[in-house]
Amino acid sequence: MAKIHTVASNTKGSPDWYKRLFAWMMAHGNAKYEEEIADRKRALFAQLHSNVLEIGPGTGPNLSYYPSDIHWIGIEPNPFMHPYIQQEAERLGLDIDLRSGTAEHLEVEDNSMDAVVSTLVLCSVNNLAAVLQEVIRVLKPGGHFFFLEHVAAPQGTMLRRIQHGIKPLWKTLGDGCHPDRETWLALENARFEQVDYQHFRANLPAIVSPQIIGIAVKKG
């Protein structure tokens, strides 16, 4: 299984040994993906400023793309991810506010964030619609949701059938990850004023190679 997932929900009910192992895998298994995706992330995060909330930051691979003057809050439910995030923040000289919690119930005030960030998280949350409504709730009017997620392959393709067939096993091994989730449709159906994204294929095992990247804007 490709080790590319950060998790915003499902680690809460997992045993400590699994959470510790998953955190180690995220810290040591993603270098190739991060190198490939660096230019896309750099372009995506160029607009970040002021108050930024990241859901499921994992071991902190996105921190290096953020300007040093933002106020960063991270909601990460796996406590074994926290030392990796803190170490990365210290390396970069960033002052961070790292909290436990889940993406379905963000302990953040209404209309308080200029931006929310999610990368490789929405595949694993228990209730995607609820997460997107929480994102909208905490964003300021006109605030931006930046996302980069692996998604379902096109309907009718062999890859889509494989994704669907392997899902029960994949969810178990990947801590709740859905390889065939149509995340772009959930984004379109949420109450954002505007959703702009593009599909692309990452140089990864086929199951997780279909991805989307984009920005959604809350109504002003």
Results as ranks from 00 to 15, higher is better:
residue 29 G to L: 08
residue 166 I to W: 00
residue 206 A to Q: 15
residue 201 R to T: 12
residue 199 H to W: 03
residue 138 V to T: 15
residue 33 Y to R: 10
residue 104 E to A: 02
residue 129 A to L: 03
residue 28 H to E: 13
residue 171 K to I: 00
residue 113 M to S: 12
residue 142 G to A: 04
residue 62 N to S: 12
residue 200 F to K: 10
residue 181 R to E: 03
residue 69 D to P: 04
residue 61 P to R: 10
residue 156 G to M: 14
residue 135 V to K: 02
residue 154 P to W: 12
residue 177 C to L: 04
residue 213 I to S: 06
residue 184 W to V: 04
residue 67 P to E: 13
residue 164 H to D: 11
residue 184 W to H: 13
residue 196 D to S: 14
residue 71 H to Y: 11
residue 36 E to F: 10
residue 81 M to S: 11
residue 30 N to R: 11
residue 182 E to A: 10
residue 86 Q to M: 13
residue 10 N to T: 11
residue 163 Q to E: 01
residue 135 V to N: 02
residue 75 I to A: 04
residue 175 D to C: 09
residue 190 A to P: 05
residue 219 K to Y: 01
residue 87 Q to N: 15
residue 32 K to Q: 11
residue 123 C to V: 00
residue 179 P to I: 02
residue 77 P to Y: 01
residue 62 N to L: 11
residue 73 I to F: 07
residue 118 S to H: 04
residue 32 K to S: 10
residue 197 Y to T: 08
residue 166 I to V: 13
residue 124 S to R: 03
residue 37 I to M: 08
residue 73 I to T: 14
residue 42 R to M: 10
residue 65 Y to Q: 05
residue 158 M to D: 12
residue 130 A to H: 03
residue 107 E to Y: 13
residue 147 F to P: 02
residue 145 F to T: 09
residue 21 L to D: 15
residue 91 R to P: 03
residue 67 P to Y: 10
residue 52 V to L: 09
residue 205 P to D: 01
residue 25 M to Q: 09
residue 114 D to L: 14
residue 159 L to E: 04
residue 90 E to V: 07
residue 99 R to A: 09
residue 93 G to N: 06
residue 124 S to D: 04
residue 52 V to A: 09
residue 31 A to S: 15
residue 3 K to P: 00
residue 12 K to D: 05
residue 209 S to W: 06
residue 96 I to R: 07
residue 214 G to Y: 05
residue 14 S to V: 12
residue 116 V to L: 06
residue 136 I to L: 07
residue 163 Q to P: 00
residue 48 L to N: 09
residue 51 N to M: 07
residue 110 D to P: 01
residue 135 V to H: 01
residue 36 E to Q: 13
residue 78 N to E: 00
residue 22 F to R: 10
residue 184 W to K: 08
residue 161 R to E: 06
residue 119 T to H: 08
residue 146 F to E: 02
residue 135 V to E: 00
residue 136 I to W: 01
residue 145 F to H: 12
residue 154 P to D: 15
residue 170 W to I: 03
residue 113 M to V: 10
residue 73 I to V: 14
residue 39 D to N: 14
residue 126 N to V: 10
residue 66 Y to R: 08
residue 39 D to Y: 11
residue 150 H to L: 06
residue 49 H to Q: 14
residue 101 G to Y: 01
residue 109 E to Y: 08
residue 141 P to I: 06
residue 29 G to W: 05
residue 209 S to Q: 08
residue 57 P to L: 07
residue 191 R to S: 12
residue 13 G to I: 14
residue 78 N to C: 03
residue 201 R to F: 08
residue 1 M to R: 04
residue 13 G to W: 07
residue 32 K to H: 12
residue 197 Y to W: 15
residue 204 L to S: 00
residue 68 S to K: 14
residue 133 Q to N: 05
residue 191 R to P: 05
residue 27 A to G: 11
residue 47 Q to P: 07
residue 74 G to R: 00
residue 159 L to W: 04
residue 67 P to D: 10
residue 165 G to E: 09
residue 58 G to P: 06
residue 22 F to L: 10
residue 196 D to G: 05
residue 192 F to R: 01
residue 34 E to F: 08
residue 40 R to F: 07
residue 37 I to P: 00
residue 35 E to F: 14
residue 96 I to S: 10
residue 130 A to W: 03
residue 170 W to N: 02
residue 76 E to R: 04
residue 143 G to H: 04
residue 110 D to R: 08
residue 74 G to A: 08
residue 56 G to A: 06
residue 5 H to Y: 02
residue 1 M to H: 08
residue 72 W to M: 13
residue 216 A to N: 04
residue 85 I to K: 07
residue 131 V to K: 03
residue 124 S to Y: 02
residue 46 A to W: 06
